[in-house]
């Protein structure tokens, strides 16, 4: 190893020492670095190249320039549909999920007894909700003969098949995702616990009602946590696959054709790898725009404490 090299002279020794540290550091991060180069950077460059080609995995890729992208935006109604469905899904499910998570977290931010058990109870759907089992069950739960219709019939609401109805299929999937609000809830809860109670006491003395306290103290103090949750949930939302694939297969009439499902269909159903790569790059750009937008706007609404900020 490099450690055996003789050292002579002060500056040379220092230089040598930095080299040694570099080697040690790189050795430690080597697993990630290899993965990063071979499985992230390499593939990204490759997929950018494929996105300009026609490639079916069996024959060599043929260069078609911007062909895939032009096709996508001018001549592919299903792409537009997938984009629309995914945007609606993200815009509805993310705010709903975060609002609900914050609401429940505020309920749990108390010294009352039993909160530990409640937290567990409310977190269980998040543990199981992403599984194939729950997807399979959801389909039956909201099916024509499922439990939901059984309950609704008590109130005289006629039975419909929620998962195969063009009007309700997407809402059913949104409900499934919002149901798994556990992780943002826990993050909000930790954030709420970090807000000094003196702030509320002082505000109460000054006559601020709970409504004011929420908007003037809770929200600003939580803004960095909201920011984190917003970024993570938005990206996750764009990537949602399993639920749509298993419950509705993108249907009925492409009403739940999520972007990831369409991409999967193109890549592994039709083996149109070039087109699918172009889809992947468009997704990346959309995610980047959204993230950049959230980051840029963060300056105006995310409040960091003077110490310990990011």
């Amino acid at each position: 190893m490099a450690e055996q090299v003789q050292v002579s002279g002060q500056s040379k020794g220092k230089l040598h020492k930095q080299w040694k540290t570099d080697l040690v550091g790189l050795a430690f991060i080597a697993p990630w670095l290899i993965g990063f180069l071979c499985f992230i950077i390499g593939p990204m460059i490759a997929s950018l190249y494929f996105s300009f080609t026609n490639y079916d995995l069996l024959t060599e890729p043929t260069w078609i320039g911007l062909g895939n992208y032009i096709q996508m935006f001018t001549n592919d109604v299903r792409f537009i549909q997938a984009l629309k469905v995914t945007l609606i899904f993200v815009f509805v499910s993310v705010p709903l999920k975060l609002a609900f998570a914050l609401f429940v977290a505020m309920l749990f931010n108390t010294k009352r007894k039993g909160v530990g058990i409640y937290r567990t109870l409310y977190y269980i759907p998040s543990i199981l909700g992403g599984s194939v089992a729950i997807a399979v069950v959801w389909k039956q739960l909201f099916g024509r003969d499922g439990a939901i219709n059984d309950i609704l019939s008590v109130f005289g609401i006629p039975s419909i098949s929620w998962v195969t109805s063009p009007d309700f299929a997407l809402s059913t999937l949104i409900l499934l995702v919002v149901w798994q609000f556990g992780s943002p809830m826990l993050i909000f809860l930790a954030g709420l616990k970090a807000i000094p109670t003196e702030l509320y006491e002082a505000a109460a003395v000054d006559g601020a009602n709970p409504f004011h306290q929420f908007f003037k103290i809770t929200l600003p103090m939580l803004s960095s946590v909201i920011f984190f949750n917003l970024v993570m949930q938005t990206i996750q939302g764009f990537m949602t696959f399993t639920q749509s694939f298993l419950i509705t297969q993108g249907g009925p009439m492409d009403k739940t054709l999520f972007y990831a499902v369409y991409l999967y269909e193109k890549a592994f159903g039709h083996f149109d790898m070039g087109y699918a790569s172009a889809l992947a790059w468009v997704l990346l750009i959309i995610c980047a725009i959204f993230t950049a937008f959230i980051f840029r706007s963060a300056g105006s609404w995310v409040h960091y404490e003077s110490e310990g900020g990011k």
Binding site: C38, F39, M239, L263, A267, L283, T291
Partner: peptide, 21 residues
């Protein structure tokens, strides 16, 4: 910083070339 960025990278972007690899 590279690592933090990959935290936010949608997995679909590398899916196809990884599959080909």
């Amino acid at each position: 910083v590279c690592m933090i960025i990959t935290l936010m990278l949608p997995s679909q972007v590398t899916l196809i070339p990884q599959y080909i690899l």
